[in-house]
Amino acid sequence: MADQEIKRPVKPEQYQPVLEGMPEMICRKCRLPMEPAETYFEYLDHGFHTKLLRCPKCGEVYIPEELARGKMAEVEQNLEDK
């Protein structure tokens, strides 16, 4: 546990464009290159969309860690944080 990195939220000023400069990603299941696609999701009755890499065959999306700890975490915090 001592060596485990503590995952802290990313601050808005540290956000990076999600797809910019990202290496090609291959879908683990279909072995196909993932493609940028508008992706929709819901959280606490609010719907959002953003561009993510998605497998053209199975539809699986790749959520980069910086997105999960950055914008997505901020959206969650704004909807929960009461």
């Binding site: 929709y40 959002f48 953003t50 914008k71 997505m72 901020e74």
Partner: peptide, 12 residues
């Protein structure tokens, strides 16, 4: 406001 970037900018 379903665009995550637009939503977050507005909320901030």
């Amino acid at each position: 406001y379903t665009d995550m970037d637009v939503f977050l900018k507005r909320v901030r």
